[in-house]
Each structure stands twice: as C-alpha cells, then as structure tokens.
C-alpha cells in the first residue's frame, strides 16, 4: 500500500465519522430548539426548513468539490445573483422561455467555473483571491446588465419547481436530495472521486501517482459553479422575482455548511452526505433564531457561537483535523 492510498483511506474514514457527527448535531439542535419553541416540531415547519435548506444545500454540494481539492469558491454568491437576474429577465414570465433561460444560466456558470479553475491551476492565483475576483466580476455584470433596475419574472411552470410538492414533500427538497445522492456517488464510487480526494489530501503525491490534478481541480470549480447556478435557479423558482442582493448570504453560508459538515479547508476530508447535514443545520439554526424573539444582532452572535461550537464538537467526535 502506498502512503498516498493509506492517507486517503484515513481521510475517508475521518470523513465518514464527521458525517455521522453532523447528523447528530442536526438532530440535537432540532430537539433543543423544539423544546424551546414547540413550533419547530410541526410537520409543516419541518418541511419548510427542508425546503429553504435546499437552496443552500445544492450550492454547498458544489462548494464541497472545491473544498475537497483544498480550495475555496467565493464566487458562488455572484453566480446565484447573476443566475437569478438572467433567468428572470430571459423568462419574462413565459413558459416558452424556460429552456433557453436555464441553458443560459448554466452556460454562464460553466464558463465562470472553468475560468476559476484555470486561474487557480494554470495561472497559480490563490483560490481565495481568484474566486473573490470572479465574484466581483459576476456581481458587476449583474449590475451592468440591469443598470441597477432588474426586470422580468419567473415563468409559472418554472415557479412550480420551487413551490410545488410531490407526495407532500417540497420539490426543491426532492431535487436537492437527488442531486446530493448523485454527487455522493460521483465522489465515492468513481475514479474522478478518488482523484478528487487524492488531489486535496496531497496534490504533489497525487500528481506523481498519475492523477490529472489540474483537470480534476478545474472540474471541481466548474461543478461548484454549476451547482451554485442550480441552487440559484431553485431559489428563483421559489421567489419568482429578480433581486440584486439574492446571492449575498451564500458567500459564507455555503462554506459554513461544508465546514459544519466536517470538511477540512485544507482539502481531502469531507463528504457530500455530511454537507447535506451541514446545510440542514445552518437552516435549522436560522429558522430557530427567527422564531425565538431575538434581535438580528443576537441572532448573528448565536449563529456564530453555535457554528464554532459545533465544529469543535464534531472535531472531537471524529478525530478529524481541520
């Protein structure tokens, strides 16, 4: 067994433990918040949380790819905003325009993601700076495109994706879980997945072992962007209207969801299933602090404390270093 294989196996084990830890945290927070505010225990509120979590959830799945390579993607917020603006302005409330609008958004996202990947791998810019720059360009593009005055609205059939249900479960939740399972399969059961973990755990060793590190990294940024666009499209279907501030909250919550899920920002540790838990946890926490009567300031502080505490606790539980 090569050292590389053993380290990536160890990383996988740590990731599996962390995945368990975040789900314990999700259940623990749910029980505690429900005891304080029984409204949290209603079936309808549980579904509401899972519906709202799906937007962050899909976006955070994308972030997980980049974090697994040891990078970070701060351009997801810009992708979400631009997706919302482009989708509503192309749809103009007409079902006939849905396909072209969705394709345009995914095409923009793919280009931005590949650009991020190339900036990081070929040109060698730190991921933090490269993606923050891309984010600024994307947000600027949304401003230039709209002149500050966004127009258009989602098409009625498209809004059903965001607001409809199947067997009582919100559509966005089902789509999120389907994408989540597909991404879990991609990272766990394919060669690409093994390359991804290997790249993040030790880039040089992976390269020497024949992993196409650069292509894997570019693919990770492209997937991150595409999933940010998918999350942005779901959010647009849920809201129905354009808003230039719509992506802002995801700049950091997407990363928080991945980290709360137990991924290491140094790369090579983390899992899609755990990120799903991380997104549920962050949304649950938001929802709980919305329900209890606290000011926004207190809400931000409580959220900050609980995120840090949860990371410390899962770290102890999993023995993972992050």
């Amino acid at each position: 067994m090569t050292p590389n294989a053993s380290s990536s196996r160890r990383a996988l084990r740590a990731g599996a433990k962390a995945a368990g830890a975040v789900w314990l945290a999700v259940i623990g927070l749910y029980v505690v918040s429900g005891l304080i505010s029984p409204a949290m225990f209603q079936w309808s509120q549980l579904l509401n949380i899972l519906q709202v979590a799906s937007f962050l959830g899909v976006i955070a799945l994308g972030q997980t790819f980049v974090v697994l390579t040891g990078g970070i993607d701060l351009s997801q917020a810009g992708i979400v905003t631009l997706t919302n603006i482009v989708a509503t302005s192309l749809m103009l409330g007409l079902n006939d325009n849905i396909v072209i609008a969705v394709f345009a958004c995914l095409a923009i996202a793919a280009m931005a993601g590949v650009a991020n990947g190339i900036l990081v791998t070929v040109i060698g810019i730190t991921p933090l700076i490269a993606t923050l720059g891309t984010n600024s360009i994307l947000f600027g593009a949304a401003l230039v495109y709209t002149g500050g005055a966004p127009r258009g609205e989602a098409a009625p059939a498209f809004e059903l994706i965001g607001t409809g249900t199947v067997l009582g479960i919100p559509n966005p939740t089902l789509i999120w879980l389907a994408i989540g399972l597909a991404m879990a399969w991609l990272t766990r059961a394919t060669v690409f997945g093994r390359w991804l973990y290997a790249t993040g755990a030790n880039t040089e060793a992976a390269a020497m072992a024949g992993v196409p590190v650069e292509r894997v990294t570019v693919a990770a940024y492209a997937l991150s962007s595409l999933l940010a666009a998918a999350g942005g499209l779901l959010l647009t279907a849920y809201i129905g209207s354009p808003s230039l501030g719509i992506g802002n909250p995801f700049l950091f919550t997407a990363i928080a969801a991945v980290v709360v899920g137990g991924a290491a920002l140094t790369g090579g540790v983390g899992s899609m299933i755990a990120t799903i838990g991380g997104a549920v946890f962050i949304t649950e926490l938001n929802s709980f602090t919305n329900i209890i009567r606290v000011s926004s300031g207190t809400q931000f502080m409580v959220q900050g404390f609980i995120i840090i505490a949860s990371v410390l606790i899962y770290r102890r539980l999993s023995g993972a270093r992050g």
């Binding site: 509401n48 709202v52 809201i239 808003s243 938001n286 919305n290």
Partner: peptide
C-alpha cells in the same frame, strides 16, 4: 428583499 422576507415570514 423579497426572498429574505419570504424565508423569515415562513418561520
């Protein structure tokens, strides 16, 4: 913002 308001109001 509409999106933030919808999420807060749902809670």
């Amino acid at each position: 913002e509409e999106d933030k308001a919808k999420v807060v109001m749902a809670d």
